[in-house]
């Protein structure tokens, strides 16, 4: 199996899906000759031509609106948003059309668009190249939301997203694009939407997380083991909506303690929904209050991003809190 990073895995997912299905098209800013600013679409224009790899004018509202129209007509567009922080111009299209067209048309029309783009922090990208804005999309009924943390999942989840019948917001943690390399199969496979992955088994505390925070959680679980002998189970949610509630409950049946870690701000972040789900459905499993470690409730900063984002110290503080309750 070839060893690839996340950019290469995403590129091969797009290439294979475009070969498999002529209806798959890619559109976005600088996706053609430039290959996208992170090179996720590199070389696609050479194989599939400018009709299927479309360099668009600079307008997210246009990119997403046009992609919805293409999907209504029968294509399978994969729209790139250059940085997910730029998606807000398209939010009207997403909230008004993309998420509601199935419902709005009594099920007669649908727009299975995949909107993908780099998200999240850790690259000193400042306020508009670092955001984790998944909660807006999770909150918008009609959308599925995905965030892979490793090349294997990136490829399998992107294929599943393209083949699905629903719109998908596909969020790619840019700090992981080239940081993680692993073997990724050349033969066709998908990672089903809606299934979490237990990254590390443990019996004392469950850490539910996603994206680049998976690696921070693993790092802290080592510190916790060596300092206190605590065994943390780390769950990578992978699909943020519909999230794998059963995987979380199964883990809590073992551990009884829950720490949720995400980069997005705390207030009304997805962690709040997970905590509420557990409170409503499985409060009797909890031996300690749920703890959240998140980005602060402030715009993402340029200065001191390491202090703004959940770091090892803050995750360790939360683990200590739930373990010593």
């Amino acid at each position: 199996m070839p060893v690839t990073n996340m950019v290469q895995a995403l590129n091969s997912a797009l290439r294979e899906e475009m070969r498999r299905d002529k209806r798959v098209v890619v559109l976005g800013e600088d996706v053609g000759k430039r290959g996208g600013v992170f090179l996720v679409t590199e070389g696609l224009i050479d194989e599939f031509g400018p009709e299927r790899v479309i360099d668009t004018p600079l307008t997210e509202a246009g990119i997403v609106g046009v992609a919805i129209g293409m999907a209504l007509y029968g294509l399978k567009p994969v729209a790139e948003i250059q940085f997910i922080d730029f998606i807000y111009e398209a939010f009207d299209q997403i909230a008004t059309n993309l998420s509601k067209i199935r419902r709005r048309s009594g099920g007669m029309f649908s727009a299975p668009v995949v909107i993908r783009g780099p998200c999240c922090g850790g690259v000193k990208g400042g306020m508009f190249h670092s955001q984790s804005n998944e909660a807006y999309f999770v909150h918008t009924a009609g959308l599925k939301v995905v965030m892979p943390s490793r090349p294997y999942d990136a490829k399998g989840l992107l294929k599943a997203s393209i083949r699905g019948e629903d719109p998908v917001i596909f969020l790619e943690p840019k700090v992981l694009y080239r940081a993680i390399k692993e073997e990724v199969p050349e033969e066709d496979y998908v990672v089903p939407i809606g299934e979490a992955r237990v990254v590390q088994e443990g019996s004392d505390v469950t850490i539910v997380t996603w994206g680049a925070m998976v690696y921070k959680a693993l790092e802290v679980s080592k510190i916790a083991r060596s300092r206190h002998g605590w065994e943390a189970e780390v769950i990578d949610l992978r699909t943020l909506f519909p999230f794998d509630k059963d995987a979380i409950i199964r883990s809590l049946e073992k551990t009884g303690r829950l720490v949720i870690v995400h980069e997005a701000p705390k207030t009304l972040g997805l962690g709040a929904e997970i905590a509420a789900y557990v409170a409503e459905n499985a409060i009797e499993l909890l031996k300690a209050p749920v703890a959240r470690v998140t980005g602060f409730d402030a715009p993402f900063p340029l200065a001191h991003e390491k202090l703004y984002m959940p770091n090892e110290a803050r995750i360790y503080m939360a683990l200590s809190r739930v373990m010593s309750y």
Partner: peptide, 22 residues
């Protein structure tokens, strides 16, 4: 109030970072 809470968390985390050598 949430930012005041988070300021305390930030201050505590600076101490813990020292302790953990980060």
């Amino acid at each position: 109030w949430n930012l005041e809470e988070q300021m305390r968390e930030l201050e505590e985390s600076l101490e813990v970072m020292k302790e953990l050598g980060i």
